[in-house]
Simulated assay, not measured.
Amino acid sequence: MRTSRTMGTILAILGLVFIVAGGVTYVMVSQELSRANVTVADDAAFLAGDHVDGPFSAFAQAQIIDKHALDSTGGKTYAELDREDPLRAVAMNASFLRASLFTSVVAFGVATMAMGVGAGMIVGGIGLRARPAAVRDEVAATV
């Protein structure tokens, strides 16, 4: 009984650590994106004109960068362009920008997942710490 209560306490504390770490990561990524002062292009499929500071606006901006790059290169990707093609630099820059934005989208997802796992750990810890009714009745009968 004592071991499960101790493990429950440890699990709940770890859950709290996960929630705090996930929250801090989410806020930090949001602030870094916001500092870049990027706005989703006006011709984006969604969130046009929105300030890029979250996962959805970062995804929308990444999508429109891809569209603009493909429009500029005649539908060709970086790998499809000849090495001497001057448009290869456009495709390369677009690819780097998209990768950066997608990295932030993944970071938001991992941070959110960490907070969810943390919440689950807290619930599990509370469950381990709770005494079943049969144990409570047995303890009360012996007192």
Score class of each variant (00 low, 15 high):
Arg2Cys: 09
Arg2His: 13
Ser4Ile: 11
Arg5Ala: 08
Arg5Trp: 07
Gly8Asp: 08
Thr9Arg: 13
Ala12Leu: 04
Ile13Glu: 13
Leu14Thr: 09
Leu14Asp: 08
Gly15Gln: 04
Val20Ala: 08
Val20Asp: 02
Val27Tyr: 06
Met28Glu: 07
Val29Lys: 01
Val29Ile: 02
Ser30Lys: 02
Gln31Pro: 00
Glu32Pro: 01
Arg35Phe: 07
Ala36Phe: 01
Asn37Pro: 00
Val38Leu: 10
Thr39Gly: 04
Asp42His: 15
Asp42Phe: 11
Ala44Met: 13
Leu47Ala: 14
Ala48Gly: 09
Gly49Lys: 03
Asp50Gly: 08
His51Ser: 12
His51Gly: 03
Asp53Met: 07
Asp53Ser: 04
Asp53Lys: 06
Ala58Thr: 02
Ala58Cys: 02
Ala60Lys: 00
Gln63Trp: 07
Gln63Pro: 00
Ile64Ser: 03
Ile64Tyr: 00
Ile65Leu: 14
Asp66Ile: 12
His68Glu: 15
Ala69Ser: 15
Ala69Cys: 15
Ala69Val: 15
Leu70Asn: 05
Leu70Ala: 11
Asp71Cys: 10
Gly74Val: 09
Gly74Lys: 11
Gly75Asn: 11
Lys76Met: 15
Thr77Glu: 12
Glu80Leu: 06
Asp82Ala: 15
Asp85Ser: 08
Pro86His: 05
Arg88Thr: 10
Arg88Trp: 09
Val90Leu: 10
Val90Ser: 10
Ala91Cys: 07
Asn93Thr: 08
Arg98Met: 12
Ala99Asp: 08
Ala99Gln: 12
Ala99Ile: 06
Leu101Val: 01
Leu101Glu: 02
Phe102Ile: 11
Thr103Gly: 14
Thr103Gln: 08
Thr103Glu: 11
Ser104Tyr: 02
Val105Cys: 02
Ala107Gly: 01
Ala111Ser: 02
Val117Ser: 01
Val117Ile: 13
Ala119Pro: 03
Ala119Arg: 02
Met121Asn: 05
Gly124Glu: 04
Gly124Ser: 14
Leu128Lys: 08
Arg129Leu: 05
Ala130Ile: 12
Ala130Pro: 04
Arg131Pro: 04
Ala133Thr: 11
Ala133Ser: 10
Val135Leu: 14
Val135Asn: 04
Asp137Arg: 15
Ala141Ser: 14
Val143Lys: 13
Val143Arg: 14
